[in-house]
Design a protein around this nucleic acid. Sequence first.
DNA 1: TTGTAGGCGTTATCAG
DNA 2: CTGATAACGCCTACAA
Lengths: 335, 335
Amino acid sequence: MPDGPTITTIAEHAGVSIASVSRVLNGLPTRPETERKVMRAADELGYVRNAVARSLKSRRTHQIAFAMADIGNPVYLAMVRQIQPVLKTAGYRLVLHSTDAVVADEIDVLRSLGERYVDGLIMSPIRVTDDHLKMIENARAPVVIIGLVPDGTAVDNVRADSREGVRLAVGHLHERGRRRIGFLNGPLDTVPGAARDAAFREALEECGLPYDPALVEVGDFYREAGAQAARRLLERDGDVDALMCANDLIALGALDVLRQYGKRVPQDVAVVGMDDTDLAAASWPTLTSVSLGSAERGRAAAQLLLARLEDGGRAPTVVTVPPRLIVRESTLETS
Amino acid sequence: MPDGPTITTIAEHAGVSIASVSRVLNGLPTRPETERKVMRAADELGYVRNAVARSLKSRRTHQIAFAMADIGNPVYLAMVRQIQPVLKTAGYRLVLHSTDAVVADEIDVLRSLGERYVDGLIMSPIRVTDDHLKMIENARAPVVIIGLVPDGTAVDNVRADSREGVRLAVGHLHERGRRRIGFLNGPLDTVPGAARDAAFREALEECGLPYDPALVEVGDFYREAGAQAARRLLERDGDVDALMCANDLIALGALDVLRQYGKRVPQDVAVVGMDDTDLAAASWPTLTSVSLGSAERGRAAAQLLLARLEDGGRAPTVVTVPPRLIVRESTLETS
DNA sequence: TTGTAGGCGTTATCAG
DNA sequence: CTGATAACGCCTACAA
């Protein structure tokens, strides 16, 4: 692992000044002769530009970070798949951070922004604390938040409308004749968890259905947690005829458990997920799911970030992506 | 977005020299009085250390990259989950790169090593070209490769034994009385694809079964590709009684298709996957799979990297993780 | 067109 | 214990 050559090394080998080397390397006008000498030396020495030194001067790293709560959730996958090409086209490299929904880690990523390792950050925090908000607003580089932040927070923000999403789903179940609709949610101290809880109550009311706490289970946004929640619910109440799940992973866990209990889906119990991840289309039965537009949100976030990178002065923008209900087998008509 | 204060700013505010500021910030012995002044100024100004400048000097970034071929493959997830804590404990932050198995992107990540943005790299390339090997051996920072590289390559290397893995799986199917064993593989120009192809032929021979090209399909390592491959195979030959799949995603795709064709698993067709990802345990029926020890491989890779970071001189190490067959419903005895 | 020199923010060495 | 000061590798006026 030889210590790399620097422009100084090259300058010596080529018999020119470091300034000339730098110019050649950056494609500035140079005499062909000089250029050739420099390029040859650089090649022979296997020169690689030290990006750290370069960004110390230029204050640009050409890197952008995407901090996701759970790398195992395909919803973030869908986002990455959109963000990646947008940024790449604009000349940025995407680096990914998995925070495992640990607030401390998210804060750490935010701080690392101040450390100048990246030019900007897209972040999808699952819990938003005051610390978050403070750091976000004071961040030294552009930040885009995917998810709900309090109105008036001075930050570019891409939102899903999970409230409308839940309404769509519950309305759909109601139309299909379901009346005992269970709800498997994630933690209430998370932003999506809280939003979906409120939305569920509202949606029931709109359908004229009572809110029955016995039909609600709170767990976590993972498949196994979804399975456990479903199990608890079924043990307590064998009569649910539908399950509204706060995301697809929970729904998949629920499907597993329903199968174990010998419940047919959708005949005995209809199931709806949220996020419309790839897994929804691939499960068995295929899963009806509310798309919260993760792909669109990813793309929008990337674009917002690029826009701000261009013009730091523009007013914070909020983009809201509308939900769509994707009906699949798990809620099919069963006449 | 105010431009951040530097140690110079702090020094002025605190009325001390920048050297003292640096010392305090790095916890070097300082007079309490000075320390207090500095800390107060730093606090008030909201100082964040400029990591870029710091690493220009220290030649350390405290960041390590993990470049994976496909962020959507849970096998990498399992690795990340192991790598993350090991590195974190040692004071490194893990940054993830998804190369989508594009060779150019992998080379780019390798080059970025020379750019000094990270102190080391763990990489799981799916295709290994000469360019790769050259760059790896000449890399300016430690690299650990997860996957097969040619013997004698001077690099720390963690391997799975997919050959033995395929043997286990095919042997298992043979024992269960299966005689027309189909094989759904990934691209043959990939390292795992080639290895598994060779292993499959060998394994058949060992069982005294003939190699029948009509029972072999080559696609890609994704679920949808697996489904397509299975479909092609079934259209051509309705009599297979087992499917050996080169990874779990392919196997899941195959399960989808078998269901569509009305084939019962395992009664009509037994299915084996590889990698033993979470999805294998969660599919329906649950999927027998060959664990190639992805978790262990991840951990080993992280440890190897740390070891080399400590001592750049040690000889390249090769760790091989043995496979294990995890039998689940998809190959259950059906007597 | 080319070279010299200063600075980006830190750390580390060396006198005081 | 503290304060100048010289790097780290690169970019960029400015001068030649």
